[in-house]
């Protein structure tokens, strides 16, 4: 009997939860705010679904009632991707070590 592909996706999902668990515990507490902004940015990979949705219309009618939601989602996710990564970059650039000129 064949295994449903859903089971494979479920396996990836469960294993990723464990990976996430161990990786996040190793994040230093002083970087918890950048952690939140970067998780925000990466969860916007949902833009992949938004792009598929946006391009689902045909060439005469690009904005049909289904694809319009896709386009809106593209804009929302893009705000998050650019905003999330850039603000994380900005924050991380501020974390500096003590100067050794003492």
């Amino acid at each position: 009997m064949e295994i449903d592909p859903l089971i494979f996706r479920l396996s990836i999902f469960i294993l990723s939860i464990f990976v996430g668990y161990y990786v996040v515990w190793s994040v230093t507490p002083s970087l918890h705010t950048p952690l939140m902004s970067v998780t925000n940015a990466i969860s916007s990979v949902i833009i992949v679904g938004a792009i598929i949705a946006g391009l689902s219309g045909n060439s005469e009618n690009i904005f049909n009632d289904s694809s319009i939601f896709g386009f809106l989602a593209i804009a929302l996710a893009a705000i998050n991707i650019f905003g999330g990564f850039l603000v994380t970059q900005r924050m991380l650039a501020m974390y500096k070590k003590k100067k050794k000129d003492k």
């Binding site: 990836i12 996430g20 996040v24 918890h32 998780t39 990466i42 969860s43």
Partner: peptide, 20 residues
């Protein structure tokens, strides 16, 4: 969407938020 990137990311972000 049967998309691995989205499943992995969702799981990562979900557990990250839960731990915080």
């Amino acid at each position: 969407l049967e998309n691995t990137a989205l499943i992995i990311t969702g799981a990562l972000v979900g557990s990250s938020g839960a731990i915080l």
